[in-house]
Design a protein around this nucleic acid. Sequence first.
DNA 1: TTTTGAGTTCAGCAAATTATGAACCAACTT
DNA 2: AAGTTGGTTCATAATTTGCTGAACTCAAAA
Lengths: 152, 152
Amino acid sequence: MVLTEKQKELIEQFGVLNEKYGLPPAECRVWGLFLVADKVELTFDEIMETLHLSKGGTSNALNRLMMTHHIEYITKLGDKKRYFRCKMNNWTQMTKENFEKFDDLNVILKEILKARTTKTPQFNNDLKEVTEFLDFVYKELMIAIKKWENRK
Amino acid sequence: MVLTEKQKELIEQFGVLNEKYGLPPAECRVWGLFLVADKVELTFDEIMETLHLSKGGTSNALNRLMMTHHIEYITKLGDKKRYFRCKMNNWTQMTKENFEKFDDLNVILKEILKARTTKTPQFNNDLKEVTEFLDFVYKELMIAIKKWENRK
DNA sequence: TTTTGAGTTCAGCAAATTATGAACCAACTT
DNA sequence: AAGTTGGTTCATAATTTGCTGAACTCAAAA
């Protein structure tokens, strides 16, 4: 598969952004490839060749993307190959999970608050407000997502 | 400064969680120290000694935390030292910035959508829905934050 | 003007993370 | 049964990241 310069550029941009969130470069590029490619179904070899990845690297990236539900594969009768494709119906779930991690922080902050000295009332009060804010935003977010899911 | 076991434990928990988001361990611990410490103002040396960090590591961590507005410092007349402290009024801003990064992803997705072949209408439509969803959640979030800021 | 104190910078090292590629496996073909 | 195909595993190599500590800067004090 041959990519245009624009496509390559977009893969890299998408990659850099996701690397900031801790994804390995190869995995980002594979994911990006699915988003920019002119076809929806890609085979192992196509991905490997197009991105100049090693077999192991390709295998690893695909498996990680499957574990995180960003892609899936289908098979075809009388064909041993797998056809990988991007799951697009997964983003609300993904976003939710993202915000749940964000809620984990709040759990720890509340624990910290409980354990704090009483000698810093101003600080403790500020921290309490933070936890209340995080509670509030989290709730509003879940409402928003639900609203989206039930739209129309 | 001597920390209780509980305080140490909380610093580590807070650290591990933030490391997941790409912060370096030392920086996480410094931030955590501010949250659990029995005093609000900490000096360079206190931080360094309490966390067994090197000078360079301490300097680096403090500067990064200042750049990201998690801490600030004050000075005292006739005292060369800086007194660092955690900024607690910053969390709504912080949360906003966090979600702006999240919006950056959407910018790229929209670019990708523009550059895509017209031969995959189903995929393109799914991708468009994702960008609309992200737009929606982002807007709702900003509304929620505004609501919080104007409460009472 | 020298000394001291507070913090910065940076070369070099250690640890962790990723990618490679060859050996391997399992299923299908011939 | 031998060969082929599609993919996995894993030891090793390459790269990246984070930390240390010594040399340094800069400002204030002596």
